[in-house]
Structure formats: C-alpha cells, structure tokens
Simulated scan of single mutants.
Amino acid sequence: MARGDRTVEALTTSLRCGVLGCADIAWRRMLRVLAAEPGLELTAVASRDEARAARFAREFGCAAVHGYEALLGSADIDAVYVPLPAMLHTEWVEKALCAGKHVLVEKPLAADPGDAERLLRLARSAGLVLRENMAFPQHAQHARVRRELDSGAIGELRDFSSVFTIPPLPEENIRYQPEVGGGALLDLGVYPIRAASHFLGPDVEVVHAVLRLQARTRTVISGRVLACAAGGVTVDLAFGMEHSYRTSCEFAGSGGRLVLERAFTPPTTYQPVLRFERQDHREQIVTRADDQFANVVRSFVDAVRGGAGAAVDHDDASLRQARLVSEVERVARRVTV
C-alpha cells in the first residue's frame, strides 16, 4: 500500500495514533482529547525514558514504547502527535512523514519558514496530512468575534492589539534553553502573531520589534512587535514569560472597541465574554463554552479521512505565521537584561 493510500484505509477504521514525547501539554490537555476522539484510537506513547512512557501509558490506556524510532517503525500506527520542544519539531516531523505517518505537531510547526515550507511540501507529495496544533482559531469565540467585526459592530477597524504573557518559570524549564525550547517568541509570541494574521489577513507586515534576552542563557524572554495591515490598520503585539498572566485580543474601530479576554487558552468550561465599548454604551456578550483542542483533533481526523488536500488553508496559515516570526527576528532590536 502506498503511503498516500493510508487515507483510504482510515475511511473505514479508526485512525491509529501514537505520541512522540511526554511533554506537559500532552499530559494536561492533548492525550485526554486524543483518547476521547471517537474517530481515533490512541495506540501508544513513546519516550526516551521508559518509566515516563509507562506512566503516560497507564494514565491514558495505551502501550508504552521506548524510543521515538521504535514507534515510527510500527506498522500499527497511522498518525503521530508530536509535542516535543519547538527546536526538535523539524527533525521528528520529517522522520514521521518519511515513515508514512500523518502528523499533528505542536506549535510552531518549525522554527524556520524554509523548514516549514519544506515539511508541508513533503507531506503533500506523500499524500499525508501535516497539521500544526495552533488551537485557538478553532474555538467558537473567535468565529463569533469574526461575525461581530464583519457586521460592523465597532465600525471600520483601525487598530488591533494582542497579548500573551505568563509569570516567570523555574530556571530549569526547557523554554530557557534556546537551542531546544526556542524561547518566548516561539512558545508565546506565535499566538498574538497568529491572531493578527487570522483576523487581518495575509498582508500583515512587521515594522519593528524589541526582544528582551536573558543574560544568563541568551533566551528571548519577552518582546513587543509593531506591525501594520491592509488599509493602514496598526498592530501592537506583546508576549513574554516575565509578567502576570494575560491573554487578550482588542479591536479598536471607528465606532467602538471590542475586547476579548482569555483569547488563547480558555478552559473547556469557560464561557468567553465579548466586551463592547462605544461612546455612550457598554455591553457584554457571554458566548458558549468550547473545547478548542477537541476541535483540532476532530479537524485533523476529518482531514485524514478527506485527503491531504483538505489541509491547504491550514498550510497557508502556518506558513504566514512562520514568515512573520522570521521577520520579527530579522528586524528586532535585542536588549539583554
């Protein structure tokens, strides 16, 4: 059976999925979702640490595999979820695709836009689905925001701002290892960058940026980006891991302002609130709770069932994100603190 024919096989059977790595996001969020998805069978989890793989396997009712290569070599696996640190994505996504596996990989798809483009091209040529797990656009609250903007609820859009910041992490956290975790730009900055691209379209252009580097490790720990979009819409993006916790998107228009809190990481039971402010009127709209990670997994399974071509829009969004990150790195003024 050719690699691309795995899609046909998946039409009549559950998609058998393995996991490369025992990351925190896998434990807290994604393995629960993978195990619950009716169109998918969580088959195995692999780690270089046998005890860690066994712990995950017991918790989520699957097999434990010692080593990533062993899992990729299994004929009983159709797809893999890759929650490895950011700087390892390119290597292991490529190996998974070459092993004939569909891939759902944590954001960012790759640290370099050239690598992202190459991996997406490799997936298409093999008839495989490669999907980046940037979950927030799959949440219902963002579809509601889009409808409000399109209806003219705040008039013509003039300014967009977005923030994702978290408190400092323990010193040993992998995010402080730039050669592995990639730092705050790749871990947190991609969210407001993706939000700008998601809502403002493909013409977002980075004008200037400031990146704060930790003196001890030379890791990017925070930053701010100034950009612009079609029609002269101004864009202000902030991110970092030396702040209080904050995730938000704000849209300022000719007739009012729309603010969305918990824009990127709402709990599954949380009912998002859209806050409107106009000159003589304030209003809050409570929207329905949603599970953005379940939506991502369901979309991934549907893409496999429908063929690799179903992922084209996601490919474009991932490439735009990678290119904008690269532009931020190119133009940024770096300040060591």
Rank of each mutant, 00 (worst) to 15 (best):
L31H: 04
R29Y: 13
C22T: 15
A75N: 11
A51F: 10
G73I: 11
W27G: 09
A35C: 05
A75M: 06
F56Q: 03
A53T: 06
D49M: 07
L31Q: 03
M30D: 13
H66Y: 05
L72R: 09
L34G: 00
R29D: 13
I77K: 02
A53G: 11
E37M: 01
L42I: 10
G73M: 05
E41L: 14
L72K: 02
P38V: 11
V33H: 01
R52A: 10
V33G: 04
L34M: 10
L34A: 04
E37W: 00
D24Y: 12
G73W: 05
W27P: 01
L71C: 08
L71F: 08
A44N: 05
A23W: 00
A70W: 03
L42W: 01
G39P: 10
L34R: 00
V82M: 07
A26K: 03
L42G: 02
D76N: 12
V65C: 05
P83Y: 05
R55Q: 15
W27E: 15
A75R: 14
I77D: 02
H66V: 14
D78H: 13
L72D: 01
L71K: 04
A54K: 13
V45S: 04
A46H: 04
A44E: 03
D76Y: 06
G67R: 10
A26Y: 05
A64Y: 07
A75H: 10
P83F: 08
H66E: 12
V33Y: 01
F60W: 09
L34Q: 00
